[in-house]
Protein backbone atom coordinates (compact mmCIF):
# COMPACT_ATOMS: atom_id res chain seq x y z
CA UNK A 1 0.00 0.00 0.00
CA UNK A 2 1.36 3.40 -0.93
CA UNK A 3 1.00 6.70 0.89
CA UNK A 4 -1.67 8.02 -1.51
CA UNK A 5 -3.93 5.00 -1.04
CA UNK A 6 -3.51 5.31 2.74
CA UNK A 7 -4.23 9.05 2.66
CA UNK A 8 -7.31 8.29 0.56
CA UNK A 9 -8.59 5.71 3.03
CA UNK A 10 -7.91 8.05 5.96
CA UNK A 11 -9.74 11.01 4.39
CA UNK A 12 -12.62 8.63 3.65
CA UNK A 13 -12.62 7.56 7.29
CA UNK A 14 -12.40 11.17 8.50
CA UNK A 15 -15.37 12.13 6.29
CA UNK A 16 -17.43 9.42 7.98
CA UNK A 17 -16.28 10.54 11.43
CA UNK A 18 -17.20 14.15 10.61
CA UNK A 19 -20.65 12.99 9.54
CA UNK A 20 -21.12 10.90 12.69
CA UNK A 21 -19.87 13.81 14.80
CA UNK A 22 -22.33 16.20 13.18
CA UNK A 23 -25.27 13.87 13.75
CA UNK A 24 -24.20 12.94 17.26
CA UNK A 25 -23.20 16.39 18.52
CA UNK A 26 -25.98 18.43 16.96
CA UNK A 27 -28.64 15.67 16.98
CA UNK A 28 -29.44 16.95 13.53
CA UNK A 29 -29.04 15.66 10.01
CA UNK A 30 -30.03 18.85 8.21
CA UNK A 31 -28.15 19.25 4.97
CA UNK A 32 -27.42 15.52 4.75
CA UNK A 33 -29.00 13.53 1.94
CA UNK A 34 -30.56 10.26 3.08
CA UNK A 35 -30.57 9.18 -0.57
CA UNK A 36 -26.79 9.46 -0.78
CA UNK A 37 -26.35 7.62 2.52
CA UNK A 38 -28.61 4.79 1.35
CA UNK A 39 -26.63 4.56 -1.87
CA UNK A 40 -23.37 4.27 0.10
CA UNK A 41 -24.93 1.50 2.18
CA UNK A 42 -25.80 -0.40 -1.00
CA UNK A 43 -22.34 0.32 -2.46
CA UNK A 44 -20.51 -1.16 0.53
CA UNK A 45 -22.80 -4.16 0.90
CA UNK A 46 -22.45 -5.01 -2.81
CA UNK A 47 -18.70 -4.51 -2.92
CA UNK A 48 -17.75 -6.27 0.28
CA UNK A 49 -19.55 -9.52 -0.47
CA UNK A 50 -15.99 -10.82 -0.56
CA UNK A 51 -15.70 -10.41 3.22
CA UNK A 52 -16.83 -14.01 3.53
CA UNK A 53 -14.74 -15.47 0.72
CA UNK A 54 -11.49 -13.57 0.30
CA UNK A 55 -9.01 -12.32 2.83
CA UNK A 56 -6.59 -9.60 1.78
CA UNK A 57 -5.44 -8.05 5.06
CA UNK A 58 -6.68 -7.25 8.56
CA UNK A 59 -6.60 -3.58 7.55
CA UNK A 60 -8.92 -4.20 4.58
CA UNK A 61 -11.31 -6.36 6.60
CA UNK A 62 -11.58 -3.85 9.45
CA UNK A 63 -12.09 -0.92 7.09
CA UNK A 64 -14.77 -2.81 5.17
CA UNK A 65 -16.66 -3.54 8.38
CA UNK A 66 -16.34 0.10 9.47
CA UNK A 67 -17.66 1.38 6.13
CA UNK A 68 -20.63 -1.00 6.12
CA UNK A 69 -21.44 -0.40 9.79
CA UNK A 70 -21.17 3.39 9.69
CA UNK A 71 -23.22 3.82 6.52
CA UNK A 72 -26.00 1.61 7.89
CA UNK A 73 -25.88 3.44 11.24
CA UNK A 74 -26.31 6.83 9.56
CA UNK A 75 -29.24 5.56 7.48
CA UNK A 76 -30.82 4.12 10.63
CA UNK A 77 -30.41 7.42 12.51
CA UNK A 78 -31.87 9.51 9.72
CA UNK A 79 -34.86 7.22 9.32
CA UNK A 80 -35.64 6.14 12.86
CA UNK A 81 -33.83 8.16 15.54
CA UNK A 82 -36.53 9.99 17.47
CA UNK A 83 -34.73 13.35 17.46
CA UNK A 84 -32.45 13.17 14.43
CA UNK A 85 -35.13 12.24 11.93
CA UNK A 86 -37.04 15.48 12.64
CA UNK A 87 -34.29 17.56 11.02
CA UNK A 88 -34.18 15.56 7.80
CA UNK A 89 -34.77 17.81 4.77
CA UNK A 90 -37.38 15.50 3.32
CA UNK A 91 -38.89 18.03 0.93
CA UNK A 92 -35.56 19.03 -0.62
CA UNK A 93 -34.01 15.56 -0.81
CA UNK A 94 -36.17 14.35 -3.67
CA UNK A 95 -33.59 12.91 -6.04
CA UNK A 96 -34.93 9.67 -7.52
CA UNK A 97 -31.97 7.60 -6.50
CA UNK A 98 -33.49 4.25 -7.42
CA UNK A 99 -32.89 5.15 -11.06
CA UNK A 100 -29.19 5.37 -10.29
CA UNK A 101 -29.31 1.90 -8.70
CA UNK A 102 -31.12 0.42 -11.71
CA UNK A 103 -28.92 2.16 -14.26
CA UNK A 104 -25.68 1.14 -12.54
CA UNK A 105 -26.84 -2.45 -12.21
CA UNK A 106 -27.71 -2.62 -15.92
CA UNK A 107 -24.31 -1.15 -16.77
CA UNK A 108 -22.60 -3.72 -14.55
CA UNK A 109 -24.48 -6.54 -16.30
CA UNK A 110 -22.87 -5.44 -19.57
CA UNK A 111 -19.54 -3.95 -18.47
CA UNK A 112 -17.55 -6.08 -16.02
CA UNK A 113 -14.29 -7.94 -15.80
CA UNK A 114 -15.88 -11.35 -15.65
CA UNK A 115 -19.47 -12.51 -15.72
CA UNK A 116 -19.77 -13.88 -12.22
CA UNK A 117 -22.00 -12.98 -9.30
CA UNK A 118 -19.21 -11.33 -7.35
CA UNK A 119 -17.63 -9.47 -10.28
CA UNK A 120 -20.95 -8.07 -11.50
CA UNK A 121 -21.78 -6.85 -7.98
CA UNK A 122 -18.28 -5.42 -7.66
CA UNK A 123 -18.62 -3.46 -10.93
CA UNK A 124 -22.11 -2.34 -9.86
CA UNK A 125 -20.72 -0.98 -6.60
CA UNK A 126 -17.97 0.93 -8.41
CA UNK A 127 -20.44 2.57 -10.80
CA UNK A 128 -22.90 3.35 -8.04
CA UNK A 129 -20.22 4.90 -5.82
CA UNK A 130 -19.24 7.19 -8.70
CA UNK A 131 -22.69 8.79 -8.78
CA UNK A 132 -23.82 8.29 -5.17
CA UNK A 133 -22.80 11.83 -4.17
CA UNK A 134 -25.24 13.41 -6.66
CA UNK A 135 -28.29 13.58 -4.32
CA UNK A 136 -26.03 15.15 -1.66
CA UNK A 137 -24.61 17.79 -4.00
CA UNK A 138 -28.07 18.62 -5.31
CA UNK A 139 -29.44 18.90 -1.78
CA UNK A 140 -26.65 21.35 -0.85
CA UNK A 141 -27.19 23.35 -3.99
CA UNK A 142 -30.93 23.62 -3.37
CA UNK A 143 -30.55 24.69 0.22
CA UNK A 144 -27.76 27.17 -0.64
CA UNK A 145 -26.22 27.58 2.80
CA UNK A 146 -23.98 24.76 3.92
CA UNK A 147 -23.08 24.33 7.58
CA UNK A 148 -19.41 23.80 8.43
CA UNK A 149 -19.53 20.11 9.29
CA UNK A 150 -21.56 19.21 6.20
CA UNK A 151 -19.13 21.20 4.05
CA UNK A 152 -16.18 19.41 5.63
CA UNK A 153 -17.87 16.05 5.17
CA UNK A 154 -18.17 16.58 1.41
CA UNK A 155 -14.68 18.10 1.24
CA UNK A 156 -13.08 15.01 2.84
CA UNK A 157 -15.10 12.69 0.60
CA UNK A 158 -13.79 14.57 -2.43
CA UNK A 159 -10.23 14.47 -1.08
CA UNK A 160 -10.55 10.69 -0.71
CA UNK A 161 -11.32 10.39 -4.42
CA UNK A 162 -8.46 12.71 -5.33
CA UNK A 163 -5.96 10.62 -3.35
CA UNK A 164 -7.20 7.43 -5.01
CA UNK A 165 -6.38 8.90 -8.41
CA UNK A 166 -2.84 9.73 -7.22
CA UNK A 167 -2.66 6.15 -5.90
CA UNK A 168 -3.53 4.72 -9.32
CA UNK A 169 -0.97 6.94 -11.05
CA UNK A 170 1.64 5.74 -8.54
CA UNK A 171 0.67 2.10 -9.01
CA UNK A 172 0.66 2.45 -12.78
CA UNK A 173 4.33 3.46 -12.69
CA UNK A 174 5.48 1.09 -9.95
CA UNK A 175 3.61 -2.15 -10.63
CA UNK A 176 3.67 -4.51 -13.58
CA UNK A 177 0.33 -5.43 -15.01
CA UNK A 178 -1.54 -2.69 -13.27
CA UNK A 179 -4.77 -2.32 -15.16
CA UNK A 180 -8.14 -1.61 -13.67
CA UNK A 181 -9.88 0.61 -16.12
CA UNK A 182 -13.33 0.09 -14.56
CA UNK A 183 -12.13 1.63 -11.27
CA UNK A 184 -10.09 4.33 -12.96
CA UNK A 185 -12.73 5.59 -15.40
CA UNK A 186 -15.43 5.52 -12.70
CA UNK A 187 -13.05 7.17 -10.25
CA UNK A 188 -12.32 10.00 -12.66
CA UNK A 189 -16.04 10.58 -13.21
CA UNK A 190 -16.62 10.52 -9.47
CA UNK A 191 -13.86 13.03 -8.74
CA UNK A 192 -15.02 15.32 -11.53
CA UNK A 193 -18.43 15.58 -9.86
CA UNK A 194 -16.74 17.29 -6.89
CA UNK A 195 -14.94 19.90 -9.04
CA UNK A 196 -17.69 22.47 -8.73
CA UNK A 197 -17.99 21.96 -4.98
CA UNK A 198 -14.21 22.24 -4.52
CA UNK A 199 -14.22 25.48 -6.45
CA UNK A 200 -16.86 27.13 -4.25
CA UNK A 201 -15.31 25.70 -1.10
CA UNK A 202 -11.96 27.23 -2.06
CA UNK A 203 -13.56 30.62 -2.82
CA UNK A 204 -15.36 30.72 0.53
CA UNK A 205 -12.20 29.63 2.36
CA UNK A 206 -10.12 32.30 0.61
CA UNK A 207 -12.67 35.01 1.44
CA UNK A 208 -13.06 33.62 4.93
CA UNK A 209 -16.80 33.51 4.28
CA UNK A 210 -19.50 30.95 4.91
CA UNK A 211 -19.82 28.38 2.16
CA UNK A 212 -22.65 29.19 -0.22
CA UNK A 213 -23.46 27.36 -3.41
CA UNK A 214 -25.11 29.22 -6.28
CA UNK A 215 -28.62 28.05 -7.10
Amino acid sequence: MNIFRFAGDMTHLISILVLLLKVYATKSCSGISLKTQELYGIVFLARYLDLFTDFISVYNTVMKLVFIGSSLAIVWCMRFHRVVKRSYDRDVDTFRHYFLVGGCFLLALFVHEKFSFREVFWAFSIYLEAVAILPQLILLQRSGNVDNLTGQYVLFLGAYRGFYILNWIYRYFTEDQFSRWISCVSGLVQTALYADFFYYYFISWKNNAKLKLPA
Binding site: R5, D9, H12, D50, T53, D54, I56, N60, M63, K64, F67, E113, K114, R118, W122, Y164, N167, Q177, R180, S183
Partner: peptide
Amino acid sequence: YSGYRAHDEL
Protein backbone atom coordinates in the same frame (compact mmCIF):
# COMPACT_ATOMS: atom_id res chain seq x y z
CA TYR B 1 -7.25 -11.94 -15.63
CA SER B 2 -5.42 -12.28 -12.37
CA GLY B 3 -8.30 -13.25 -10.12
CA TYR B 4 -10.10 -11.61 -7.30
CA ARG B 5 -7.00 -10.34 -5.52
CA ALA B 6 -7.01 -7.57 -8.12
CA HIS B 7 -9.67 -5.99 -5.90
CA ASP B 8 -7.26 -5.11 -3.14
CA GLU B 9 -8.55 -1.57 -2.77
CA LEU B 10 -11.48 -0.50 -0.64
